[in-house]
C-alpha cells in the first residue's frame, strides 16, 4: 500500500535513477560473488589446470620432468577392455541409482511433509544414512554383504527361500546390485530432505484453492506441486548425477572394482591407475573422461536456467 502511494507521481527525473540501480546491480553482483569465486579459483581452479596438463603428459610419480604426449593417454585408455567395461559400469550404476533415489526421495519427502507425532525425530532419523560418513557406512555394508556372515543370507537360508545364500559381492551382477543398493540407501535421504525443503515453499493456499475447484490429490500433486518444486528437483538430480558418476568411496570399500572389474567405476579405476600404479597422467585422463557427460548436464542446466529466468 505504501509503495503505491509513493510510486504514483512519475516524472522524467526518475529515469537516471533506474539506470543507476542497474549499474549498481552489476557492481554489487561482482562484490557478492567475489568471496566464493576466490575460494573456488584457489582450491579448484589451479589444481584443475594442473590436472588438465597432467593428462596430456607422461607424468608418473617417478618422473621428475614430464613430456608432452598429446592425447596418447586418452587413446590408450580406449584400448583397454577394463576401461570400456568401467564406462559401462559407471553408466549402469549412475542411471539405476539416480532413478531410484529420485523416486524414493520424492515419496519420502511427501510422507515427511505431512504432520504426525515425533515428526522432527523421524525426519532426523531418516537422514541418518546420509549423515554417517560413507567411509564407515560402507564398512557396515561390507559386513552386511559378507560372503560368510551376511545377515541377509542367514535370513534367506533360515527362512527356507533358498538353500544357499546370495554371493553378494562375489558375482558380477550381484556385486553391481549390492553397490547400487548401498548407494540408494545412502543417497535417498539427500533427495528427500532437499525435496522436502522444496515442498515447504509450496503455497498451501494454492493447493486449497485447487481442492475447492475439485482437483483430486493426485492432480494437485502433479499439476501444482511438481511444477513448483521442479527447480529444486532438477538441481538435486543434476548434482546427484555428478556425485554418482564420480563416486569412489563406496566401491573402494566394498569391492575395489572386483570381481574381475565388474564393479569398477571411473573414479575407482582412475584411483587404481593414478595412485596404486603411480601413472598420474593416465589416471587424470581416465577421470577426465567423465567430463563429456558432465558437460551435457551443465548445458542442460544453463538452458533450463535461461528459460526460467526470462
Amino acid at each position: 500500500m505504501r509503495a503505491e502511494t509513493r510510486e504514483r507521481p512519475v516524472t522524467a527525473g526518475q529515469l537516471p535513477t533506474i539506470g543507476e540501480v542497474l549499474d549498481r546491480q552489476g557492481v554489487l553482483a561482482y562484490i557478492l560473488l567475489l568471496p566464493g569465486l576466490l575460494i573456488l579459483a584457489a582450491f579448484i581452479g589451479w589444481p584443475f589446470i594442473t590436472s588438465l596438463w597432467l593428462s596430456v603428459t607422461d607424468q608418473s610419480v617417478s618422473t621428475s620432468v614430464a613430456r608432452f604426449v598429446g592425447l596418447e593417454n586418452f587413446t590408450g585408455a580406449l584400448k583397454s577392455q577394463i576401461f570400456l567395461q568401467t564406462v559401462r559400469n559407471t553408466f549402469v550404476y549412475t542411471g539405476v541409482t539416480v532413478v531410484f533415489k529420485l523416486g524414493f526421495g520424492l515419496g519420502l519427502a511427501v510422507l515427511m511433509n505431512q504432520s504426525f507425532r515425533l515428526k522432527n525425530l523421524a525426519r532426523a532419523a531418516l537422514l541418518l544414512p546420509w549423515i554417517v560418513p560413507t567411509a564407515l557406512s560402507a564398512i557396515a555394508w561390507l559386513w552386511l554383504f559378507d560372503a560368510t556372515f551376511s545377515v541377509f543370507n542367514w535370513a534367506i537360508v533360515r527362512s527356507g527361500i533358498a538353500d544357499r545364500g546370495i554371493n553378494w559381492l562375489g558375482e558380477g551382477v550381484w556385486a553391481m546390485t549390492s553397490i547400487i543398493i548401498a548407494n540408494i540407501w545412502r543417497g535417498t535421504p539427500f533427495f528427500a530432505i532437499s525435496i522436502l525443503a522444496g515442498l515447504q515453499t509450496v503455497d498451501r493456499e494454492l493447493l486449497d484453492a485447487a481442492a475447492v475447484d475439485g482437483a483430486s490429490p493426485w492432480q494437485r500433486f502433479w499439476r501444482i506441486t511438481i511444477p513448483l518444486i521442479r527447480p529444486v528437483v532438477l538441481i538435486v538430480l543434476l548434482f546427484s548425477t555428478v556425485q554418482t558418476i564420480s563416486d569412489f568411496q563406496l566401491v573402494y570399500v566394498l569391492t575395489r572394482g572386483g570381481p574381475a572389474n565388474s564393479t569398477h567405476l571411473l573414479g575407482t579405476l582412475a584411483y587404481d591407475v593414478a595412485v596404486r600404479a603411480g601413472q598420474l597422467s593416465q589416471g587424470a585422463a581416465i577421470s577426465l573422461y567423465m567430463f563429456p557427460v558432465l558437460i551435457v548436464c551443465v548445458v542442460a542446466l544453463l538452458v533450463y536456467m535461461r528459460r526460467s529466468s526470462v
Partner: peptide, 20 residues
C-alpha cells in the same frame, strides 16, 4: 566355493575362525 570371488584379505580370517 564361488563366494571366494568376493573375498578380500580379511574374509578368510573370519571364515576360518567361524569354522566355515
Amino acid at each position: 566355493d564361488p563366494q571366494c570371488l568376493s573375498w578380500d584379505d580379511s574374509s578368510n580370517n573370519r571364515a576360518y575362525a567361524a569354522k566355515q
